[in-house]
Simulated scan of single mutants.
Amino acid sequence: MKPRQRRIAIIGFGLLAFGLAAALVLNALRSNLVFFFSPSQVVANAAPRNGAFRIGGLVETGSVRRAGDGLTVRFVVTDLAQRVPVSYRGLLPDLFREGKGVVVAGRLQPDGSFEANQVLAKHDENYMPPEAAAALEQARQSHTAPTLEAPP
């Protein structure tokens, strides 16, 4: 094999190895990527029906219901415009409270409820994930937007 052919073969093998490594990394990232949606987006069918994603908003006051087993909890996540019922089996974070910010990860069920496998509560009064804060602000603006009446 001539030096030129050997160089071309080495470069080709390197490109093939790089392409394979890039494909494996992208596949791993795609399978572990979890998107964030607001309750309004979930109700509007903008969220995936068969994939995992996160919902963020506020725990609706008066919506927390605990089952007799001590581990199953049902509550409603709202962005003040729409509501999504959530069920979770496990221990809740210490900061989980009604009226406070929460992000839940899981899957949407055929009945429109959300089955969470992880619940994250905000850690202090001043912090909320940027996506959740933006979704709440957008919902507040659309929900409390002034209406103009036509003059008589």
Results as ranks from 00 to 15, higher is better:
G14I: 11
L15V: 12
A133M: 11
L91D: 11
E149R: 14
L16K: 02
L136C: 06
F75C: 10
S31D: 10
A21L: 07
E125M: 12
V103L: 05
R4E: 15
F114V: 04
P93L: 09
V43Y: 01
G56D: 13
V73R: 02
G57K: 05
T78W: 07
H143C: 06
R30E: 14
R140H: 08
R49H: 08
D69M: 02
A67S: 05
V25R: 04
S113I: 05
A9R: 13
R65N: 13
V104I: 11
V103I: 12
S87Q: 10
E125C: 03
A9N: 06
P129V: 08
E98F: 05
F37Y: 15
A105S: 12
R4P: 01
G70S: 02
V42M: 07
A28P: 00
G12M: 10
A22S: 09
A23D: 00
G101V: 10
D94Q: 15
S63A: 01
A150Q: 15
V73P: 00
V77M: 02
F35I: 01
F96C: 03
K2R: 12
V77T: 03
L33R: 08
L24A: 14
V25I: 11
G101W: 12
E98L: 05
R89M: 07
G70Q: 04
G101Q: 09
G99K: 04
L148P: 00
S38E: 03
R140I: 08
G12K: 09
H123D: 12
V73E: 00
S38H: 03
Y88I: 08
I55R: 05
R107V: 00
Q41P: 02
H143M: 13
R4I: 15
V64Y: 02
L58K: 11
I55Y: 04
V59F: 03
I11L: 15
Q109N: 02
K100P: 00
V84E: 06
V84N: 05
A105R: 11
P152T: 03
F13S: 12
L20N: 04
D124H: 13
F35S: 10
Q118D: 09
R140P: 00
R65M: 09
G19A: 08
L120V: 15
T78G: 07
S87F: 04
P130R: 12
A145Q: 09
L24C: 04
N45F: 06
D111E: 02
K2Q: 10
A150W: 14
F18W: 14
Q82K: 14
S113H: 07
G90C: 01
Q5V: 05
Q5Y: 07
T61C: 00
F18M: 15
E131V: 12
F36S: 11
T147D: 01
G99D: 04
G56M: 13
E60W: 07
F35C: 00
F114T: 04
G68E: 12
L26R: 10
H143R: 15
A44F: 10
A132G: 04
F35W: 09
R74H: 10
A145E: 08
R83L: 03
G62C: 06
D94T: 12
P129H: 14
A52M: 14
R65L: 10
Q138H: 11
R107W: 00
F36Q: 11
P39K: 05
E131T: 12
A135L: 09
G57N: 04
T72N: 05
M128F: 15
P152W: 03
D111V: 02
A44Y: 11
F53W: 11
A134E: 07
E60G: 04
I8M: 13
V76A: 06
